[in-house]
Design a protein around this nucleic acid. Structure first.
Lengths: 321, 321
DNA sequence: CTGTTAGCGCTTTCAT
DNA sequence: ATGAAAGCGCTAACAG
């Protein structure tokens, strides 16, 4: 049966007659033949199946783009994806890893929502691993958003739109004390922002520092800043939920977003499209990251750390002065 | 090697000495032995792997609970989940089905976001199938939200809180013309609402009919209703995004949600928790549905159509009159 | 150039 | 009670 195997797998079989080739293909078609991948993997050690293990990625709405991108890219490469969620529980992670290894997967993507340093256990050295939206010393291959570049991009956009002198930042975090609560990425975002400010030789007109970035926090901070009677022209919000709170505060003060005060933020939550006017934001490129993770896993890239560009998405909440 | 197999699989081996039993287990442990599920499946025809094929479920934030529940339940049952998304493309669906069948999965869950009648092709009769958040004539086993019950529950809650005489519905749909745009489920929701109204012998003080349920639509409709100067005490919104729009309209009219006008809605989007006051809503029980789908697939339930209860989630946007 | 065979890692059947 | 052997569906290494 080797001939059949060769034909169906399109091997460089100059050895086979075209006649046989046609016949076999016809027969396979007629019988609705499908190869048993499990049996094949017993010989080839390749299952064309990859594992995607996340803490809360698939369920959380925020980062579902990660998994969507991974599914897309895997499908294009003829692979299929086993998904598991650990909710950050090390026991569940170990179980998931074992369950996938038992199924002889070709590689594993570890994705994280929290994006801190993660630790991975129980994966043999020879199994390829890519770390997605996180980093770990154990494995060099990682895919992360270019937060520094994103931070810089935000500031450059505000400057370009004429807001150099009137920016208030909502949600600033210091580079040390908040590191427990926030991911390294957020600190990078902050660093990019400060770097671009320095580079342009400008300063925030005011800084509201807080590290819980929910709508209420944004609302309260914006309210406070507005009451100071500073010549504010723009709020730079550390995420879209903070911006949502800022919108509420601006409306309550009888002002209008964009017309009176511009708002720029980060993440590109679904929320950003709901708001009126649409919220301009420097987006987390989740889908692209998911795609890149699969490529990095399957294609053996030369470089190991992949920084994915954060795109500026303009929806009208930043007006030109 | 039969003895080893029996011991490791905990067979009713009254035939084996306890001594051998202990020894084998110790050896397995020491060597870090793990069974090769692919090889096993060759003999047993069971892979302990199930397929989860959705149109846009995993990626869309809305229904990610479906997949989360499925992953949870599968994990508990010692199964692992292959996930694929089709974005509604029949070709991609066929590819996904084939890829999974080639991997000898034990069953498939077809999930839908749009929740209409779906059609499934290419699955052999002997492969178990459960349809999640959708229905199809081809397969009897389905898991869907109890929309009729949910609709009734909403009305009963408003009545109980004293709003019988002042309810305006935002987003009403007729039972025929909108059926192309909306799922059968939405029509069921509407039917439950009307049924409960009839049962209580009351009528809406006004009905705003529209079938695109985005924040802007809710905003415009609420605005219009408020300008009519009717004695409105509550808005019943057909989903949370419509309610979000209603909140904006209420605020703009100088009124306060709950204090002046109550708001009740459906779905329990993440959005509902962001709003102030928190939005009371009759939730879509996505996670429970995902769990049930796996159970229905693996446990061979006697009954085939599973209606999952929609819970009333009270957050404070409905006040007692 | 083609057809036969061995063996991937398991479980089940059949002899001992 | 234990061990040997067959075979699941495939592909790689053989002989012809």
């Amino acid at each position: 049966m080797s001939a059949v195997s060769m034909i169906l797998n399109d091997r460089p079989g100059s050895r086979l007659s075209d006649d046989a080739r046609v016949k076999v293909k016809a027969a396979a078609e007629a019988l609705g033949y499908r190869p048993n991948i499990a049996a094949r993997s017993l010989r080839t050690d390749r299952t064309h199946t990859i594992g995607f293990i996340s803490d809360v990625v698939a369920s959380t709405r925020y980062a579902s783009g990660l998994i969507r991108g991974a599914l897309d890219a895997a499908g294009l490469a003829g692979h299929v994806v086993l998904v598991a969620e650990t909710i950050g529980d090390p026991d569940r992670e170990a179980e998931s890893v074992a369950a996938m290894l038992d199924r002889q997967i070709d590689g594993i993507i570890f994705a994280s929502m929290r994006a801190r340093e993660i630790s991975i256990t129980g994966v043999p050295r020879q199994v390829p691993v890519v770390v997605l939206n996180a980093t770990t010393e154990q494995y060099p291959r990682s895919v992360t958003p270019d937060e520094i570049g994103g931070g810089e991009k935000a500031i450059r956009h505000l400057i370009e739109m004429g807001h150099s002198e009137g920016i208030v930042i909502l949600g600033a975090v210091g580079s040390n004390q908040d590191s427990a609560l926030h991911s390294k990425f957020v600190l990078n975002r902050m660093e990019g922002i400060r770097r671009a400010m320095r580079h342009a030789g400008i300063e925030f007109i005011s800084e509201a520092s807080f590290s819980l970035w929910e709508p209420k926090d944004g609302y309260l901070a914006a309210k406070r800043e507005l009451s100071k009677n500073l010549p504010i022209t723009a709020f730079l919000c550390m995420n879209d939920r903070v911006a949502f709170g800022a919108y509420q505060a601006i409306a309550e003060s009888g002002l209008r977003v964009a017309k009176d005060i511009s708002v720029l933020s980060f993440d590109n939550d679904e929320l950003a499209g709901y708001l009126q006017p649409g919220l301009s934001t420097v987006g987390l490129p989740y889908k692209e990251m998911g795609i890149m993770a699969v490529k990095a896993l399957l294609e053996d890239y030369p470089d190991e750390e992949h920084l994915i560009d954060m795109p500026l998405i303009q929806r009208g909440s930043v007006s030109r002065l």
